[in-house]
């Protein structure tokens, strides 16, 4: 693989200047933010590069354990921000993500899909946790929005004798469906519209395309499955918080982030 030199990297400033100039030209007001985000991105990536180098140098179980734990906490915090107003949103996100990570990692290892090595487990777990984080955040947000916009239907269901679970079925279905649809679409067009990130990375790293797609299949199917599981867990647990003990609908305050 060809190394990108520091000098070559510096030329990327030119690329950053394009959106910055556009911002000033059209008074978009995002010039400072574009510079700051680019700088922050570069620093963050370098930092991660050094952290990963360190993690890959220590025993696998330590490296994996340490970094997966960090990813789980950050992802849970981020997902729970979208669940503002929902009780225990952080704990719920954390336990869902832990469950999902343990489930996927066990399958990968037991079926010998990938070896238990930091270089393999950390980036692949990152993709699973990252996608599940987005799914969890969207599920929180969707549940709040659906309960808000379908209040009348939920009340109608309760007045017909439904319990909280029965009255929430339509909302739970919509939430899980909403989490699954983008992944169904993504799987349909995978490789046709753009090469997925992981596959691109492996090819750039010198792997053969056939080897790269094997990894991509593993990650795409795993993401599809975990995102669905994550949305299901979040919606099946959180619907209860929209009702009190007398099966009466209660409002959950808290804006969406």
């Amino acid at each position: 693989m060809t190394n990108i030199s520091n000098l070559s990297l510096l030329t990327m400033i030119l690329f950053v200047m394009i959106p910055v100039s556009l911002s000033y030209l059209y008074s978009l007001g995002i010039g400072k933010s574009a510079i700051w985000s680019s700088l922050r991105g570069v620093v963050q990536l370098f930092l991660i590069g050094y952290i990963l180098t360190f993690l890959f140098s220590i025993p696998d179980w330590q490296g994996i354990g340490l970094w997966v734990a960090v990813m789980l906490v950050i992802a849970s915090f981020q997902a729970s921000r979208r669940g503002q107003g929902i009780p225990h949103a952080f704990l719920l996100s954390l336990s869902s993500l832990i469950l999902i990570e343990v489930f996927v990692l066990s399958l990968w290892i037991v079926f010998d899909i990938i070896p238990f090595r930091s270089e393999q487990v950390i980036p692949m777990s990152g993709m699973i946790i990252g996608n599940s984080m987005v799914a969890a955040g969207l599920a929180f947000e969707r549940m709040k929005n659906e309960f808000h916009s379908n209040q009348g239907k939920v009340l109608a269901a309760l007045s017909l004798g439904a319990n909280a679970s029965q009255a929430s079925q339509m909302i739970i279905r919509k939430t899980i469906r909403a989490a699954m649809i983008p992944n169904v679409d993504r799987l349909k067009t995978i490789g046709l519209v753009q090469l997925p990130g992981m596959m691109t990375g492996l090819i750039l790293g010198g792997a053969s395309p056939i080897e790269a797609i094997r990894y991509q299949i593993v990650i795409s199917i795993s993401v599809f499955s975990t995102v669905s599981i994550c949305a299901m867990i979040i919606s099946l647990v959180t619907y209860r918080f929209f009702f009190n003990q007398n099966m009466q609908l209660q409002t959950i305050e808290g804006g969406n982030d």
Partner: peptide
């Protein structure tokens, strides 16, 4: 649930 079934409501 029984109560709500016995006291029907139309919105």
């Amino acid at each position: 649930n029984e109560l709500r079934r016995n006291i029907g409501m139309v919105f």
